[in-house]
Design a protein around this nucleic acid. Structure first.
Lengths: 150, 150
DNA sequence: CGGCATCCGATCGGATACTG
DNA sequence: CAGTATCCGATCGGATGCCG
């Protein structure tokens, strides 16, 4: 049984998200899924992870409703792993991490992968946190509210 | 020496981000910093982590330029930990995780903490991934481009 | 090729005790 | 209160071998 440190009982949505994802491997699997990977081997080559690790992570992601295991589209006996709607909803998370990384960990001109608009091949706009009425918000413009259940 | 699985040599910005953050504890520390925590004890109470764990994570976050250690503002002999600009730039990441969690892991009416606009006390707009010219983009509208260094 | 079983050293994190 | 030091069981992940 997995007894990793759990955060799933927290009232904080961030903690529950973190707990649902599991670990970094899982997050990078999701990234690869966004990039088009579907097969066990594709994930493995991309990640360089040991097979048992990958197997375990795929299983927890499927169990968590983030990936779905479907029969291979090429008719082979194997499975493919595709994002569920819940998994696709992680898109902003991945994009946010990607943009943060692009802005802080690459020298100008250094090789890196970039997420672009498929239609125009252009870079994406940097994610903005907006208020309900559309103002740009920084960290200091927000505060955490406790909402008690009823 | 820490020999955790490293992703920092990857060309993928997501991987480098993940590597720079370190682990979930570190991410939750950053979350607490956004929520206003500054002192060792504040983080510890909020996280429920062992002190040695917290010490180690704070150290790596400072070393990574995400937090900065400054003298305590109350004149005591202790330190406070505040986000650097680089750390503040993680804001969209935390918000994205928070929103994903709110949408998938809480029953309607269940108690949870919520991030609100300080000025109006209202919820934030859901993060949107936009193209350079402002169209909303889903995962299928984007593709990963390899940019080779020069 | 996809996946499972097993082994093993490294690391993690909780607990506790100690310092100033 | 803010750490530091140490111990220890649990877990992790890499490697390997086996099976369909």
């Amino acid at each position: 049984m997995v007894t990793r440190t759990r955060f799933d009982d927290s009232e904080c949505p961030v903690a529950r998200s973190v707990d649902a994802i599991g670990d970094w491997w899982s997050l990078l699997i999701v990234r690869d899924a966004f990039d088009g990977s579907r097969r066990f081997g594709e994930f493995q080559r991309s990640l360089g992870a040991a097979k048992n690790i990958l197997t375990a992570r795929l299983r927890t992601l499927v169990a968590g409703g983030i990936l779905e295991s479907v029969p291979a589209s090429d008719g082979s006996a194997y499975r493919e792993y595709v994002l569920t709607p819940k998994g696709e909803a992680l898109f902003p998370v991945i994009v946010a991490l990607r943009q943060w990384g692009e802005q802080h960990f690459f020298a100008p001109g250094e090789a890196h992968s970039q997420l672009v608009d498929r239609r125009q091949g252009k870079y994406l706009r940097t994610l903005e946190v907006l208020s309900a009425d559309g103002r740009r918000l920084g960290p200091d413009d927000t505060t955490v509210h406790k909402v008690s259940g009823h």
